[in-house]
Design a protein around this nucleic acid. Structure first.
Length: 114
DNA sequence: ACCATGACGTTTC
DNA sequence: CGAAACGCCATGG
């Protein structure tokens, strides 16, 4: 059983703060938490996110290339891409189009929030 | 205690 | 420019 460190909670918080129609990356979250080198831990935390209530919008979290690498961890593989499309994000073959445009950086938004 | 794996990212060849 | 290797940290066998 994984330890419930605040690291996990922070990850979940950031993911929940991602606005609709936006996406963030594991690296960005890790960097925001101060563990930029440990992007893997963010992904690992997300794997544990299945325990969290309510279910996290994990479909808004992708890798730095904008590929829906985590879709295999969803109940239904299509749900992740479908949810993103539903929010106005164009997704083709698990690849977000104009990913940079939809990218939402917590450090820029939470840190410089007016 | 060691090796292998992972929803990643950066650097090197 | 594309592929491979390395680094990071934690978990499981």
């Amino acid at each position: 059983m994984p330890k419930n460190n605040e690291f996990f909670d922070e990850v979940y918080q950031v993911v929940r703060l991602v606005p609709k129609g936006r996406v963030t990356t594991y690296g960005a979250i890790g960097k925001f938490l101060g563990s930029a080198k440990s992007a893997r831990m963010v992904g690992w935390a997300m794997n544990n996110s299945h325990h969290q209530l309510p279910p996290l919008p994990a479909h808004r979290v992708v890798n730095r290339t904008g590929v829906l690498t985590g879709m295999h961890h969803f109940s239904n593989n299509n749900s992740m891409a479908e949810l993103l499309k539903k929010e106005g994000i164009e997704v083709i073959e698990n690849q977000i189009v104009n990913f940079k445009k939809y990218f939402w950086d917590p450090s820029e938004n939470l840190g410089l929030q007016p």
